[in-house]
Amino acid sequence: MEEKDLINRILRGESALFAAIIKQTQGLVAQIVFKLVKNPEDRKDLAQDIYLKAYKNLSTFQFQSKLSTWIGQIAYNTCLAYLDKKKLVLPDGHDSAHENEETLLEYLSNKTLSSTDNETEQLLFRAELAELIQAALDTLPPMYRLLITLYHYEELSYDEMSAITNLPVGTVKNYLFRARKALKNRLLKNYSNEIL
């Protein structure tokens, strides 16, 4: 069913169809809520709150963006209001490179090179690295975590991210650049702890 038909039918009283909208968009909403909010109980309340708001305000949706972007926007704003209340920190942007960056990179490079003899060992290392990346991502400020997730894992465009976060595209790109750099630095830091 077309998005527009679906919405019009819900607005005409077929509220049971709203379930389809939740199913379509809850992946993105989960990403936003999980990246911005740590507490599981609060996540649960926020997720419900987001969809009840979306239902209540569905008639104000102007079809200027994808419905998922609009609901993403509601999710972001709802979480942000919660973050403000709890005074959680947003980007600091001061993540310095590891002092032994060159050595660490060399080491990593040798481990991940496809020419490495032992294939099993390499696969194991890559799985380990994926875990290290996840752990490093979890230590980033919520905004950085979110932007990396939306861009690299949910594959949203800069415009969509800009609409969701209500930040100018330039700011989104700038934060994203800083987020990647911070992630790389945290990863190398974690990795150096691992191998030392």
Partner: peptide
């Protein structure tokens, strides 16, 4: 290296 997408541990719908 893409992490698993998070899912809510209750039936949100």
């Amino acid at each position: 290296m893409k992490p698993e997408a998070p899912i809510f541990d209750f039936d949100l719908t």
